[in-house]
């Protein structure tokens, strides 16, 4: 296995790992939303502006979880494609070697159809891989968009929390936890994008 193939395997495998961390964080946001809702309910009028924000936070967490679940399925199929591409490349290289070694064999010519077929299959896998990487990058961009939205919500939450009197600290903690989670999601997804972007145009 050459270094590029190794890196490709590592890149694809690391996406699943990064995304499972994103999933954990998204679930934390969902929990923070439920917590904020309870606090805002107790705070009554003092946290009136905070109440609709909790629904936004919850909705955002739910959408992120759904998106990551679907990306994970996609990442697994990308991994399978990487395995297939690897197998097809090995076969093509071995078939080329057969043609070279068997040049004096009476039936050497019969190796041409399998060789051509292996070449086509390998190239098909390579094109499919590039297409899938591009689509995965688009989906990851959607998660980044959610992370950015979460940070805006966190900023709004801080403003609303400042008007919540004795509930200020609790609601600020919620805003902090949403902001922190959004950062983590952003960083993890960014790492996936960097790892994959090498293969978009390779």
């Amino acid at each position: 296995m050459n270094n590029q193939t190794k890196s490709q395997f590592v890149a694809v495998a690391s996406i699943t790992s990064e995304l499972s961390a994103v999933m954990v964080v998204a679930k934390e946001i969902s929990l923070a939303a439920a917590n904020a809702k309870a606090i805002a309910f107790r705070a009554g009028d003092k946290a009136k502006g905070f109440q609709p924000i909790t629904d936004f936070i919850n909705e955002l967490a739910k959408e992120t979880i759904e998106l990551v679940t679907s990306i994970n399925v996609y990442a697994l199929s990308l991994y399978q494609l990487t395995v297939n591409e690897y197998r097809k490349t090995i076969a093509y290289n071995k078939f080329e070697l057969v043609v070279k070694i068997a040049k004096d064999a009476p039936y050497a010519q019969s190796m041409q159809p399998p060789l051509e077929h292996a070449k086509l299959s390998m190239e098909l896998c390579q094109r499919q891989f590039k297409r899938d990487v591009k689509q995965l990058l688009d989906q990851l961009e959607a998660v980044m968009h959610h992370a950015r939205a979460a940070r805006v919500i966190a900023a709004n939450s801080r403003i609303e929390a400042s008007q919540a009197g004795e509930y200020l600290q609790s609601l600020q903690a919620v805003a902090e936890s949403v902001d922190k989670a959004a950062h983590t999601i952003h960083d993890n997804v960014q790492r996936c994008r960097i790892a994959l972007s090498l293969y978009r145009n390779s």
């Binding site: 071995k94 057969v98 070694i101 068997a102 064999a105 009476p106 039936y107 050497a108 190796m111 159809p113």
Partner: peptide, 16 residues
Amino acid sequence: LFAPMMAAVLHHAPVE
């Protein structure tokens, strides 16, 4: 051994 084996078989039979 695949490549040398296949190459050797091609002295006796076509792939198909």
